[in-house]
Design a protein around this nucleic acid. Structure first.
Lengths: 228, 228
DNA sequence: CAAATTTGTTAGACCGATCTAACTTATTAC
DNA sequence: GTAATAAGTTAGATCGGTCTAACAAATTTG
């Protein structure tokens, strides 16, 4: 009594995680193969193999032996809607509940599997229909459509350029805590002072930080909009 | 990556539902047997039987063949903490997200299984550490202790008494919608005008309702505090 | 109290999600 | 272009949570 209605055409939490992983990997790697998926989900190859077959049976994925994995349009939409719930939740946790951007991923990872359209609709309303999450990633709309932005990694910027930090390609707690420690937040304007040819680190200045060195690893994870 | 850490001593969602059901049934029926549990959870007897054995192995339940089910102190606490999450969530949904009291049960039923202490702690803070949920049921504290209130069912009140509606023993959507339709909310003061001997229905007055008849079924589900 | 009914148990099956072991196909390197 | 390596497959097992069928114990009822 009172439990959610289970619709047979609905993905289980596990299936949702596969779809989401596939979606994210496709966006960052282009083609995705089984072992990348298995690695991303921390499961064995045979597990991923059998799950992919079952996702295919459900019409979310197209798969031919030894070929790359492809989400069907339905799979794409399904994945985008899960990511929508994840990102809306993250935004809600930050803006309405006072969490730090480094704390919200783990919680959202669980909340995203809740089946309650009104719940997420209400978050959306309360947040004023946001288009990006606390890490600058776009929030798909309720049809699963994603507005693509064309940001560039800070690592590709030239000395002399002024840029604004707009998104991240990695949102691990550790990375976010590093950014916190340097007072780097979305919206921060940075000026690229120089690039060290040896290790490709960048020296930048911003706000009360006249000189800060960012390693290549860091600067390639920072997405920026070029201002000048 | 980013998924919740699974602690072996942690109950699965299914186990949590069994503990919760057992807790609630014990509180309303006293002794609980297997078939009541099975019926309450909408599972077959053998399913409940095998699950109870496994809950016993985990130390949440004591069970001897053909005997009533008993929650161990650990099981009691575990159950109370799940109910705490459920009721805090209901309160949050009503007070902070604008849901009606008849809409929140289904959502809370899912949110209660989230493992994220900070999330519920934050709700608790934002709500000012409430002690009752939107239906007047007590919210266990973070040690799983429950403050018991001694309310009486409206059905036991005598004509002439003035009472205040303080809680419900049933919070089904249908019942809550019935109460909404009669503008009966927690806190409403009612005066018992008369009791119909034939069907035990009560005639009451309150606010802009000089005369309203409540069936026995309704009045025994309304818990009140006697004011005079 | 014996018969009927309710309640509980056991056995055996299924399904989703996972694993390891053994094997095969594809890709890469020399 | 073969050998080595990486990627993928198949088979078979396990575990949690569920079921039905068949049987046994306890309780209720005439």
């Amino acid at each position: 009594m009172g439990d959610q209605i289970i619709n047979p055409s609905m993905a289980s939490s596990t299936e949702e995680n596969y779809l989401k992983a596939l979606f994210n990997l496709s966006n960052s790697l282009g083609e995705v193969n089984l072992s990348e998926l298995a690695h991303g989900l921390q499961v064995s190859l045979p597990t991923a193999n059998s799950m992919v077959k079952s996702l295919q049976k459900s019409g979310w994925v197209n798969y031919e032996k030894y070929k790359p994995l492809i989400l069907t349009p339905e799979g794409q939409k399904e994945a985008a809607l899960i990511i929508r719930k994840h990102r809306l939740t993250e935004m809600f946790l930050v803006k309405k509940m006072g969490f730090g951007w480094e704390e919200v991923h783990e919680i959202a990872e669980q909340v995203e599997h809740i089946h309650a359209p009104k719940f997420f609709q209400r978050m959306d309303e309360m947040l004023g229909f946001p288009t990006i999450d606390p890490h600058g990633s776009p929030i798909p709309d309720n049809q699963g459509r994603i507005q693509e932005f064309s940001y560039v990694p800070l690592s590709s910027c030239k000395p002399g350029q002024t840029v604004q930090l707009t998104a991240l390609t990695n949102s691990s707690t550790e990375f976010l805590e590093f950014l916190n420690s340097r007072k780097l937040a979305l919206g921060t304007q940075l000026k690229v002072l120089s690039r060290e040819a040896y290790d490709l680190s960048l020296v930048v200045s911003y706000q009360n930080h006249p000189q800060e060195t960012l390693s290549e690893k860091v600067s390639e994870r920072l997405l920026v909009r070029v201002l000048d």
